[in-house]
Computed example of a mutant assay.
Amino acid sequence: MRSKRNQILAVPYVVWMAVFVVVPLLLIVVYAFTTKDGSFTLANFSTMNQYLGVFGNSFFLALVATAICILLGYPLAYFLARSGHRMKGVAMMLIMLPMWMNFLLRTYSWMSLLEDTGLINRLLQSIRFFDLWNGIFGTNIEFFHMINTPGAVVLGMVYNFLPFMVLPIFSVIEKIDSRVIEAAQDLGANSRRVFQKVVFPLSLPGVLSGITMVFIPSVSTFVITKLLGGGMTMMLGDLIEMQFLGAAYNPHLGSAISLVMMIVVLICMAVMNRFGEGEEEAMLL
């Protein structure tokens, strides 16, 4: 009886997934292997050769943003996991607070900060930093050009996706049994040794989850590149948007690019999940 009731309750979810997930994926597959007249073709995939640079640039910038998120997020997550209850509550609120605001609003705020006449450059001018810089290096600059650069795009990705790295790592480290750490200390391991042999291996599932949650939206973003990159840094998201909404309207090519990107992302996820399972099995042994 309960099983039948659960099946009935699951019907809206199944319908939702079918209409908004399965059907769009099937349409992408159909469009990727067809032409405008509906005939089968592989030309859409061969045409992607001219966009290999965009693929390389997208994965490179996404990897850089993910690496920076790890370097910033892991120490923060570790510190929060070892902090007191009150400190955790305040810190988690500060981490989650930007996520409660609109994504576009957060990105627009960085535009006002990074512009040539933005708040950062005006602050540096007010403290006469550029006078000191020009005196030391013999230059004649009046501002740092930060907007519409790959660095600005990476900064935007790190800012928007850093919480997705911190939260899974924090949740895993917080659940590590303190008795395991105490046992390692009783066996003579110092703090560095405990971290290397106990804490870090046990936190790898959280790290891998964070990598997945940061890398996937980073490699496919287009709003950040459009606003902070000014169209100067093209990534896969921008390329796909051009095929569906831009002047170079070609939904068949856009579907092929989307399909290849999904396959590559799924392969990366499978490799990371497999690596995580291997680490867990090694720790159990």
Results as ranks from 00 to 15, higher is better:
84 G>N: 15
197 K>C: 13
277 E>P: 01
178 S>E: 13
18 A>I: 05
213 M>L: 15
173 I>S: 03
61 L>I: 13
281 E>Q: 13
146 M>Y: 07
241 E>G: 10
176 I>Q: 05
202 L>Q: 15
119 L>P: 10
95 I>L: 07
71 L>S: 04
157 M>G: 07
22 V>E: 10
6 N>Y: 11
205 P>V: 09
88 K>F: 03
250 N>L: 00
280 E>R: 09
61 L>V: 13
75 P>E: 07
155 L>S: 07
240 I>D: 04
201 P>Y: 04
49 N>G: 12
188 G>M: 04
50 Q>R: 12
251 P>D: 06
203 S>P: 08
263 I>N: 04
242 M>Y: 09
192 R>D: 12
221 T>N: 15
18 A>E: 08
190 N>T: 02
164 F>E: 02
84 G>V: 15
277 E>M: 15
51 Y>I: 08
172 V>C: 05
137 F>T: 01
17 M>I: 05
94 L>Y: 04
153 V>W: 03
211 I>L: 14
60 F>Y: 13
195 F>H: 12
257 I>W: 01
80 L>E: 07
133 W>Q: 00
188 G>A: 05
78 Y>D: 09
185 Q>F: 00
222 F>E: 10
139 T>I: 11
190 N>G: 08
117 T>V: 03
192 R>C: 13
283 M>P: 06
81 A>R: 10
75 P>S: 08
86 R>G: 09
98 P>M: 04
204 L>T: 07
86 R>K: 11
219 V>E: 01
76 L>F: 09
176 I>P: 03
140 N>C: 03
276 G>W: 01
83 S>C: 14
177 D>Y: 02
212 T>S: 14
93 M>L: 13
142 E>A: 09
115 E>P: 02
265 V>A: 08
254 G>K: 05
252 H>E: 15
229 G>Y: 14
280 E>N: 09
259 L>M: 14
